[in-house]
Design a protein around this nucleic acid. Sequence first.
DNA 1: TATATTTTACGACAAATGTAGTAAGTGTCA
DNA 2: TGACACTTACTACATTTGTCGTAAAATATA
Lengths: 132, 132
Amino acid sequence: MRLTDTEWQLMNCLWEKHPATARGIAGRLPPEVKWAYTTIRTLLARLVEKGAVREYKEGNTSLYEPILTRENARRSALMTLVNQAFDGAYGPLMHFLVNDPNLTPKQRQALEEALKEQPENRGGTENGGDNR
Amino acid sequence: MRLTDTEWQLMNCLWEKHPATARGIAGRLPPEVKWAYTTIRTLLARLVEKGAVREYKEGNTSLYEPILTRENARRSALMTLVNQAFDGAYGPLMHFLVNDPNLTPKQRQALEEALKEQPENRGGTENGGDNR
DNA sequence: TATATTTTACGACAAATGTAGTAAGTGTCA
DNA sequence: TGACACTTACTACATTTGTCGTAAAATATA
């Protein structure tokens, strides 16, 4: 599931708190984003159409809820990046990250920390093909 | 500099070998990509227009050469990803990578390897604002 | 040189994306 | 009960992206 720029913004709000109304989302968008209420509705409708979001009515009001998980959205965004920019392999990406001058020493360290915090390969998530 | 899906394909060919003709690029595209010659020309023209590629004539033939470096294209693609999908921070990305079940133990190890190979923070590239 | 092959220069067009607007329905409060 | 305010349902429209096609010019070749 590919998300566009605007869709990421909406999904980020939805993941943060849901179900949510269009108005509620408007309130949680970053301040520099000034979309008309109807714009948000349109984008939400597209997300529903794509199957990334579910819409249901509470009386007359539409409530929205993510179907696509943040986890899965991230995974596919990352795979896309790796495929198009890093020869389809994690290795080059890693290499790039560690060498990235934009990465502060602190971040680099965090990276190492994160690596240490190795999970014992917790089960589940054997990917049954369903991207919820 | 944002590249679209198709632009990545062309740029990948160009970085691999340049200068190159449209015909030459056609030859180096992955086999599943079957674009008409004119499609390639159109995409190259758009890249030139964007300033990612330089075009010059050798007699009557157009030769293309990347202006945007792979390094910079990667950097901005990564930043875009981090910004829209990982709260703008490397940390969450790292965390995600290490925990990604799609990452095989071998890849995970590669990641660690990459991390070890720490560069002595070689100078330069202090980002003068120029994205060549 | 007449013909076949390539390149170039432009134009086209559908689908996806970004961004609204309008009209009609519903709820709300003086 | 009328005047507002908010929702919904549609429609709209400019750009960007993905994919070519055609005609004319340049090159190569028989």
